[in-house]
Amino acid sequence: MSEAPVPFLDLPALHGPLYPEFEAAYATVLRHGKFINGPEVTAFESEFAAYCENVHAVGVGNGTDALELILLGLGIGPGDEVIIPANTFIATAEAALYVGARPRFVDVLPDTLLIDPAAVEAAVNEKTAAVVGVHLFGQMCDTEALAAIAAKHGIALVEDAAQAHGARFAGKRAGSVGVASGFSFYPGKNLGALGDAGGVVTGDADLADRIRRTGDHGRSADSRFHHNLVGRNSRMDSVQAAALSIKLRGLDTANAGRVRAWEQYKVELPDTVRLVARDPRAEAVYHLCVVEVENRDKVCQALTEAGVGWGLHYKTPCHVDEAYTEYRESLPVVEAAADRILSLPMSPTISESQVSRVCEVLRDVTGGSSG
Rank of each mutant, 00 (worst) to 15 (best):
F22M: 00
A256V: 13
S223Q: 04
A205R: 14
S223G: 13
T92E: 06
C300W: 06
L74I: 02
D111H: 12
E326M: 11
Y265T: 05
I350Y: 09
L69W: 08
G77D: 10
S351W: 08
D65L: 09
N125I: 10
N233A: 15
I70W: 06
S347A: 15
L11K: 07
P332D: 05
S356F: 09
P39G: 10
E144C: 10
G75P: 11
D364H: 01
Y98D: 15
A208I: 10
R249D: 08
V308S: 02
T143I: 06
G77T: 09
G100C: 03
T28H: 15
A180W: 02
N255I: 01
E23S: 13
V82N: 02
T366D: 06
G63Y: 02
K247G: 07
A95Y: 05
L342C: 06
V333T: 09
M140C: 14
T202A: 04
E159D: 00
L312R: 06
V320Q: 07
H319D: 11
V106D: 09
A96F: 03
R232L: 09
L157Q: 08
D297E: 10
K127D: 11
A86W: 07
C359V: 02
P17N: 10
R232V: 02
V58G: 07
V291D: 03
P280K: 14
L11T: 03
